[in-house]
Design a protein around this nucleic acid. Structure first.
Length: 592
DNA sequence: TTAGGGTTAG
């Protein structure tokens, strides 16, 4: 910038300060380059008697980059008033400004101008219009622009696909995707990511296979999306494959990608691999630290999570909000009440981070799980913000664990009205009633669910073998090896019975949040998945299961015994956390 | 000058 200012004074000396060519260059640098100064550009602009369209365009772009979208629109009006004709460089940033600024009326006017000035054939302007209407949540308009374009390019297609998927119309997005004449990796990734974001992992995997078959390059963004798919699905082998691919093809391991890999390993149950990647990073982004701390939290390694926070501080890195969410969650899962209290205050005292909803949620969970229900309630009452469903849900969960019926009933009723479509809330309240034998109330909740058309989420467990994910539902018989699996299951249960296993029939009576009322405990999906694992893996190999609900008491007990009798480590990821069953014990210390 | 990614409690 200093050199630029010198250059500017030379121009003044040469009497060129009214020369648009020379001034345009200086303004361009000041307005849009990284080391520029927008204020300076503005001052120069004001001193030019008759700026040309290039100068207007470049300052509009500068304003856009600085998020001063209002100024973009104003400058455009000024341009028209000065009778300077806009060209095809004028509209893309201008449309973008309307879009970012949510200026619907101005956007429509700019759209009309684009047509009036004859830019129907300009792909950049038209593509930006599609984007703008998507941003305004006006898909029909976006589609109309798309349909009227004389020549659509891959960006037009991808923008439209991403628009439909972002607004939740993933199936429509896919229909459009199928019509694209020549897809590049951005377009593939857009559709794959759409499936991943809506938790439709199988479709994401199927699309990925197709992409590879069509020999489209697997770039780092596709890799990142697929890592998320593996994370969501609990597909460790597939995730390892992607990681290997990244290494062997020299794909640059930028901080975001590294974080995705660490997160994948943590959430697929492999903390060792996650640490290995984490420790091997030359420059660790804060997100990498956060996902590693979060991983330790999920696996119940509270003290290790705290150690990592201290490590961060030793390296003079400032933890952020997310770091503390993860640290507090680590304390909650490990029952570290004292430490939790400490860090809850510490974050504000030392780092000036005001606790947000998530932090209160963690604290309520921490206190509630530890049985300190009154303290949890007091914290909620004293919160500076009004608690959301998550915070109240944490308290309700604690009431269920500790059989705190009065408080639980009150919170449960409140939650059901707050989130009338969340089946989990009804289930938890019904369970609370069931625990104390209030069967009429259980029936009432069931009826309320029926009347409101709220469906319970069906439970399922998954196990990945040779890169194939096998899914089980309670009592399901659709698996091609069903007979074999049920035989193994019976053998498995017989073995643990002789070691003292008694099915937890108490829970059976209450089994409303269990997997399926019609199917007895012995056919819970988790047990089926473990039986299949015992059948198909080598002796001594770790069995890894992912399930969508929380582990039930009976399955937890059975899994501990199976780990001992069959000499297997069993790693179960449930809705909340990981359980590592080993030699008759669980890493959660039965605290979950 | 236009399209794509990560870490957040229950």
């Amino acid at each position: 910038m200093a050199e630029l200012k010198q250059f500017h004074s030379q121009i003044i000396r040469l009497g060129l300060s009214a020369d648009n060519d020379a001034m345009g260059r200086i303004i361009k640098f000041s307005a849009v380059s990284e080391s520029g100064e927008l204020n300076y550009a503005q001052k120069l602009f004001d001193g030019i008697p008759q700026p040309d369209s290039f100068i207007y365009n470049i300052v509009i772009r500068g304003y856009l980059q600085a998020q001063l979208t209002r100024n973009c629109i104003q400058l455009y009006s000024q341009m028209l008033q000065a009778s300077v004709t806009p060209n095809h460089f004028t509209f893309p940033p201008l449309v973008r400004a309307c879009s970012v600024h949510n200026a619907v009326e101005e956007g429509k006017q700019v759209h009309a101008h684009i047509l009036k000035f004859g830019f129907l054939e300009d792909g950049f302007s038209q593509n930006n219009l599609i984007h703008m209407y998507v941003n305004f949540h006006r898909l029909e308009e976006a589609r109309r622009v798309f349909d009227k374009m004389p020549r659509r390019d891959i960006v037009s297609w991808t923008t439209l696909i991403s628009g439909f998927s972002q607004l939740g119309f993933v199936d429509d997005a896919y229909k459009i995707f199928e019509l694209v004449p020549q897809r590049n990796s951005v377009c593939w990734n857009c559709m794959i990511a759409a499936y991943v974001k809506s938790n439709r992992f199988k479709e994401a995997f199927a699309l990925f296979e197709r992409m590879l078959a069509e020999k489209v390059e697997l770039d780092k963004l596709v890799a990142a999306s697929m890592l998320s798919a593996c994370t969501g699905f609990g597909a460790l082998e597939q995730g390892e494959w992607i990681h290997q691919y990244i290494k062997s093809h020299g794909i640059e391991l930028d901080p975001k990608l590294a974080t995705s890999i660490i997160d994948m390993y943590c959430k697929c149950g492999c903390l060792e691999k996650a640490s290995e990647v984490f420790n091997g990073l030359p420059h660790k982004a804060i997100s990498s630290w956060n996902s590693m701390i979060g991983g330790l939290a999920m696996h119940g390694k509270g003290n290790a999570a705290i150690e990592l926070l201290k490590d961060m501080e030793r390296k003079s890195l400032a933890p952020d909000n997310i770091t503390f969410v993860n640290v507090l969650s680590a304390c909650a899962h490990a029952g570290l009440v004292k430490e939790g209290h400490h860090y809850f205050h510490y974050m504000t005292k030392v780092y000036k981070l005001e606790p947000k909803m998530e932090h209160f949620g963690c604290m309520v969970d921490l206190l509630g799980r530890a049985g300190l229900l009154q303290e949890a309630r007091k914290l909620i009452d004293e919160m500076p913000i009004s608690p959301d469903a998550g915070v109240l849900g944490a308290l309700l969960g604690a009431c269920k664990i500790h059989g705190e019926i009065d408080l639980g009933e009150q919170i449960g009723k409140q939650l059901i009205e707050l989130e009338p479509h969340n089946s989990g809330r009804y289930v938890l309240l019904a369970n609370l009633y069931a625990n104390v034998g209030r069967w009429d109330d259980v029936a009432n909740i069931r009826k309320l669910m029926n009347d409101r058309g709220v469906k319970k989420v069906p439970g399922f467990s998954m196990i990945e073998l040779d890169g194939v994910v096998n899914e089980f539902i309670a009592g399901g018989r659709t698996h091609p090896h069903a007979n074999e699996i049920y035989a193994k299951l019976d053998e498995m249960l017989e073995s643990i019975r002789s070691a003292g296993y008694v099915p937890d029939t108490e829970e059976l009576l209450h089994d409303i949040d269990g997997e399926d009322k019609k199917n007895p405990l012995k056919y819970h999906s988790e047990k089926l998945a473990i039986a299949y694992g015992l059948l198909k893996t080598k002796p001594g190999a770790t069995i890894r299961i992912t399930k969508n609900l929380r582990v039930c008491k009976d399955c937890h007990h059975a899994s501990k015994l199976i780990s001992k009798i069959f000499y297997r480590e069993i790693v179960v990821r449930d809705r909340n956390r990981f359980h590592h069953f080993r030699n008759g014990e669980c890493s959660c210390n039965d605290y979950w």
